Amino acid sequence: MNPLACRAVAQAGLVAATASADDERPWPLLLVAGWHTTATDLVLADARLAEDLAALPV
């Protein structure tokens, strides 16, 4: 489990909980998208690293 990815998802949830879809400002909702993108990137990077480590000779 990647603690940074978990934190990014938690941040997205926090921003989403406090953002209102009725609010005219798009900035809070863009933050949610950004944190989800960060979490996805971190998880994918971990998967690539795990594959690379598994390919190393023992």
Rank of each mutant, 00 (worst) to 15 (best):
H36K: 14
L53H: 11
H36E: 03
Q11V: 06
V58I: 15
D41Y: 15
A21W: 11
P26E: 11
S20F: 06
H36D: 05
D22N: 07
A50C: 05
V58S: 13
Q11W: 05
W27V: 09
A12Q: 06
V15E: 06
L56Y: 12
A50H: 12
D46K: 00
T40F: 11
T37E: 03
P26D: 14
W35S: 03
R7L: 04
A50G: 06
P26K: 15
G13L: 05
L31I: 08
T40A: 08
W35A: 03
L30Y: 08
R7E: 08
P57M: 15
L53I: 12
L14D: 10
T38G: 00
G13D: 07
V32G: 13
V43C: 07
N2C: 14
A21F: 14
A45R: 01
A45D: 01
T40W: 11
V32L: 10
A33F: 09
A19L: 05
L42V: 02
L31E: 09
S20V: 04
E51I: 09
V9Y: 09
E24I: 02
A54W: 04
T38V: 01
V9R: 12
R25T: 08
A45T: 00
A33D: 06
L42P: 05
L30G: 03
R7F: 02
G13E: 06
L53Y: 07
S20P: 08
T37R: 12
A19M: 07
G13S: 10
A50P: 11
A45Y: 01
R48I: 04
L31T: 10
P26H: 13
M1Y: 03
V15Q: 13
